[in-house]
Design a binder for these strands. Structure first.
Length: 149
DNA sequence: GCCAACGTTGGC
DNA sequence: GCCAACGTTGGC
């Protein structure tokens, strides 16, 4: 059992959308490190911190879990879509995604609050210049965060 | 809208 | 295989 933090822009897809949908394909990831986390390390049942980014109040907005192991991201094959990848074929897909299932909406834990806990100082999300949309979370960090929500 | 940081691309 | 240029991310 592992833990993850996954970023999403609430204007595109926020915790309320996930609450409505129940679960969703985490398509559109076009970064190899993030892809590898999904493809190689995520297992059904892994815990997910649902993080709102690029918005007025960035922070953790809810809890989710991995609902389906990684499979080829369908959007890479759509020539009209913005996630199209001309070098990907169904026989040799380049991008993968898991499905994520809603667990609960929580209060918003703002980035500034996360930054304030010494226990969370090692989180990737706090590293300068961090741009990874999916990052592993230590079990201790997970426990600390969940206890404050 | 600014800008720092980073990943990717492509010329050589 | 180097590395400069470019595009994107994301907090502020």
């Amino acid at each position: 059992m592992r833990y993850w933090l996954m970023k999403s822009e609430p204007a595109e897809y926020g915790i309320d959308d996930l609450a409505r949908d129940g679960s969703v394909a985490w398509f559109g990831v076009r970064n190899y490190q993030a892809r590898n986390f999904m493809r190689d390390q995520m297992r059904v049942g892994d815990g997910v911190l649902f993080y709102h980014s690029s918005c007025a109040e960035p922070g953790i907005a809810g809890l989710a879990e991995v609902a389906k192991p990684a499979y080829p991201d369908a959007t890479q094959f759509d020539p009209d879509g913005k996630y199209y990848d001309a070098k990907a074929t169904p026989d040799n897909p380049r991008w993968f995604n898991v499905d994520v299932r809603f667990v609960k909406k929580t209060r918003l834990m703002p980035l500034a609050e996360i930054r304030g806990y010494p226990e969370l100082a090692g989180m990737r999300i706090l590293a300068r210049g961090n741009r990874l949309s999916i990052t592993p979370v230590d079990p201790d960090e997970w426990r600390h965060i969940v206890a404050q929500l």
